[in-house]
């Protein structure tokens, strides 16, 4: 019985601590390292497969982009950031959780979003209900969430208050428990080294009447 309990515990721990492959690194710029379990820190290269529980750290000038394998949700990590990537795999989805120690990340949740996507900091918890946002975490000041598209639900763990941050707005979650939102100053939006297919899009619809004459409707959107 005791052996069985130890075995179950080990199994439970292994499930919690990782082993599940959940994301792939598609781009690395500069100095970026990762740590798996108790192994030494290694340099991160594109094509690396992240397992749940891996720690990622970007140095000054560093940048990494990774994609989750269940729904193509993307995570971009800017310089001077450190986070733990976790994911619980089920048959149809991966419940994703990012523990951001500090730094700046951009989350782009795919259209075919499967599973939860949660980002935790020491102060806040951001739950994604939409598609695209930046989260900047500073251990001294707090967290700011810049909504680009969709809705991000921001919880301040200290005060328990929640706020939905929508596109064009910035949510500020402070260490004193305050939670506020204001219109985004475009100058505060971090630069994405990779750019994104979602930054500017064009929808082209071509119409054709019975005689074959064509007209085109072009919609630019972000």
């Amino acid at each position: 019985m005791r052996l069985k309990q130890i075995g179950m515990s080990l199994l439970f721990i292994s499930v919690i601590l990782g082993g599940d492959r959940i994301a792939i690194v598609t781009k690395v710029i500069g100095s970026v390292n990762y740590t798996r379990g108790n192994d030494a820190s290694k340099s991160l290269k594109k094509g690396h497969i992240f397992e749940s529980g891996d720690v990622l750290r970007t140095e000054k000038g560093g940048f990494a982009a990774l994609i989750f394998i269940d729904d193509k949700s993307a995570l971009k990590i800017k310089e001077n950031s450190e986070l733990i990537i976790s994911g619980k795999r089920t048959a149809r989805a991966i419940a994703k959780e990012i523990n951001l120690d500090s730094g700046t990340i951009r989350a782009q949740v795919g259209k075919q979003k499967r599973g939860d996507f949660v980002i935790r900091t020491s102060v806040s918890v951001a739950s994604v209900k939409g598609t695209d946002f930046w989260l900047i975490s500073d251990q001294k000041v707090g967290d700011s969430v810049i909504g680009l598209e969709g809705i991000v639900s921001l919880l301040n763990q200290i005060s328990g208050e929640t706020l939905d941050v929508t596109s064009g707005f910035t949510g500020l979650s402070s260490m004193d428990g305050s939670l506020q939102s204001f219109k985004t100053d475009p100058k505060t939006i971090p630069e994405d080294p990779v750019g994104s297919a979602g930054d500017s899009k064009k929808l082209i619809i071509e119409f054709q009447d019975a005689s074959g004459k064509k007209k085109t409707l072009i919609i630019d959107y972000k």
């Binding site: 792939i24 598609t26 781009k27 594109k46 094509g47 994609i67 269940d70 193509k72 990779v194």
Partner: peptide
């Protein structure tokens, strides 16, 4: 430098 070919058979 950004090219990596990747596909997921998760589903």
């Amino acid at each position: 430098n950004s090219l990596i070919i990747a596909a997921s058979f998760f589903n």
